[in-house]
Lab assay of single mutants.
Amino acid sequence: MSIQHFRVALIPFFAAFCLPVFAHPETLVKVKDAEDQLGARVGYIELDLNSGKILESFRPEERFPMMSTFKVLLCGAVLSRVDAGQEQLGRRIHYSQNDLVKYSPVTEKHLTDGMTVRELCSAAITMSDNTAANLLLTTIGGPKELTAFLHNMGDHVTRLDRWEPELNEAIPNDERDTTMPAAMATTLRKLLTGELLTLASRQQLIDWMEADKVAGPLLRSALPAGWFIADKSGAGERGSRGIIAALGPDGKPSRIVVIYTTGSQATMDERNRQIAEIGASLIKHW
Rank of each mutant, 00 (worst) to 15 (best):
F13S: 08
G242V: 01
F228I: 08
S254D: 15
P217S: 10
T186S: 14
I229G: 01
T193L: 15
S201F: 15
E175S: 14
T158N: 00
I229A: 04
M66T: 06
L219C: 04
R255A: 03
P172T: 12
T267A: 11
R271S: 07
N272S: 07
K53G: 13
M184T: 01
V72G: 02
D177H: 00
H285D: 06
S80N: 14
L247S: 06
R271L: 12
E175R: 13
P65K: 04
P253R: 10
N134E: 01
R238F: 14
T179S: 12
P60R: 14
R255V: 05
I283Q: 05
S96Y: 12
L135I: 08
V82H: 08
E87G: 04
I93K: 03
L192R: 00
E164R: 00
S254P: 08
F228G: 05
S128R: 00
R220V: 02
R41G: 05
R176A: 04
R176P: 03
M184I: 09
N134I: 02
T187L: 12
G242A: 11
A133G: 09
P181L: 02
V29G: 15
M67I: 07
R241Q: 04
Q97T: 09
I244P: 00
A225L: 14
E270G: 09
T158Y: 00
H5A: 06
L38M: 11
A222P: 13
A245G: 11
L218F: 03
L218V: 04
P249G: 04
D161V: 06
T69E: 01
R118S: 15
G154V: 02
A225E: 15
I229D: 00
L188S: 05
A124S: 08
D36E: 15
L223K: 07
E145R: 13
V101G: 08
T193A: 14
T262A: 07
T178F: 01
P181C: 09
L89C: 05
S2G: 07
I11L: 10
D250T: 11
P165T: 13
M184R: 00
M268K: 05
S96W: 09
T198E: 08
L120I: 05
R7L: 07
F228E: 04
L219A: 03
D177V: 01
G76S: 11
L219S: 03
Y260S: 01
L167H: 02
D269M: 11
L160D: 02
G239A: 04
H5Q: 07
D161A: 05
S80C: 12
R220E: 02
N168T: 06
K30T: 05
A23V: 14
I3S: 09
R159C: 05
R189Q: 14
P60T: 14
V78S: 02
P65E: 02
I244K: 00
I171R: 14
I283V: 03
D99Y: 08
V29M: 09
A185V: 07
L19A: 15
A246P: 00
H24A: 15
G85R: 11
A246R: 01
V82L: 05
G194S: 15
V157D: 15
L89P: 06
L100T: 06
T158A: 05
L136A: 04
L223N: 03
M66Q: 05
M180I: 13
E169W: 09
S57R: 11
E166C: 14
I125G: 00
R41A: 08
V214R: 06
L19E: 06
G248V: 00
R241E: 02
I125S: 01
A235L: 05
H285Q: 09
L150C: 09
S264D: 08
I93G: 01
S240D: 06
G39D: 10
T198G: 12
A215G: 10
T187Q: 04
S254L: 11
H5R: 07
A123D: 02
L218H: 02
H94N: 09
R91A: 04
A230S: 05
L160A: 14
N134L: 01
L192S: 04
L19S: 14
L218Y: 01
P105L: 06
A276D: 10
D250S: 09
R7H: 06
T27R: 02
L38E: 06
H156Y: 10
G216A: 09
R238L: 13
M127G: 06
I243F: 05
A225D: 13
F17V: 11
H151R: 15
V82K: 05
K213Q: 14
R238I: 09
H110Q: 10
A77C: 11
K144L: 10
D129V: 00
Y44C: 01
E56W: 04
E237K: 13
C75G: 11
A211S: 14
L188C: 09
G142R: 02
R91H: 10
Q203K: 07
Q86A: 13
G251C: 11
Q86N: 13
G154W: 13
N134D: 03
P181H: 03
A34V: 14
D33A: 15
Q86G: 12
P172K: 10
Q88V: 12
V117A: 03
R59H: 12
P181D: 00
G43V: 13
L197R: 04
L120S: 03
P224S: 06
S254H: 09
G242D: 00
L219E: 02
A123V: 08
M115I: 09
E56R: 10
E210G: 08
E277R: 10
V29A: 15
R241A: 03
T147I: 10
A215T: 06
I278M: 10
D113Y: 07
K232R: 06
H94P: 12
G43D: 00
G226D: 11
E61A: 14
G239R: 01
S254G: 12
R176C: 09
S240I: 00
N134K: 03
G239S: 04
P181T: 04
H151L: 09
D250V: 10
H24R: 12
L135Q: 07
N173A: 11
E237W: 09
D212E: 04
L136P: 00
A230E: 00
L10G: 07
A170Y: 11
L89A: 06
I243T: 03
M153Y: 11
R63L: 08
E175V: 15
W208E: 02
P224Y: 03
I206G: 10
